[in-house]
């Protein structure tokens, strides 16, 4: 695995290499940023501030993420995540994966800003250490 550092998701550019995760093989891999999509969502869409206590992430209704519920892997949009579901979180020092339970979800509303979606070669990357589909 190459040397790596944290960066803002909005700074990612095509050609950058990010830490990612192979859902089927269940291992951390490197993936390349292959595109960068900018979207302007309609106003008044729900957002979800999902927290595991240690880590948190703010998502719009459109974001897709993998999570576990009762041991079953689910890949679905953020609105389906419930308190008690387990997110896939990276320990970037040890390059290992842990599952962390969601302890709180706060609903909010979008404010019509442009949202950046870097696209990775395998479709996944970590944001605030939490695995997210691009």
């Amino acid at each position: 695995m190459s040397w790596h550092e944290r960066t803002s998701i909005t700074d990612l550019m095509v050609g950058d290499v990010v830490l990612s995760y192979d859902i089927n093989e269940e291992k951390i891999i490197e993936a390349e940023i292959i595109d960068r999509v900018e979207e302007l969502y309609s106003d008044g869409k729900e957002t979800f501030a999902i927290s595991t206590g240690d880590y948190g992430i703010n998502l719009t209704i459109f974001h897709i993420l993998p999570y576990y519920r009762d041991g079953e892997l689910i890949i679905d949009n953020s609105g389906t995540v419930e308190v008690g579901d387990e997110l896939i979180v990276i320990n970037e020092d040890e390059l290992s994966i842990i599952l962390q339970k969601v302890i709180s979800i706060e609903e909010g509303i979008t404010d019509n800003q442009v949202v950046y979606h870097p696209v990775s070669s395998n479709g996944y990357y970590f944001v605030n250490r939490i695995l997210l589909h691009d």
Binding site: V37, E39, F62, H63, I64, N77, H117, V119, G123, D134
Partner: peptide, 10 residues
């Protein structure tokens, strides 16, 4: 095309 967001691809 590939620029379509993932949720719309699904």
């Amino acid at each position: 095309d590939e620029s379509v967001p993932f949720h719309k691809k699904i």
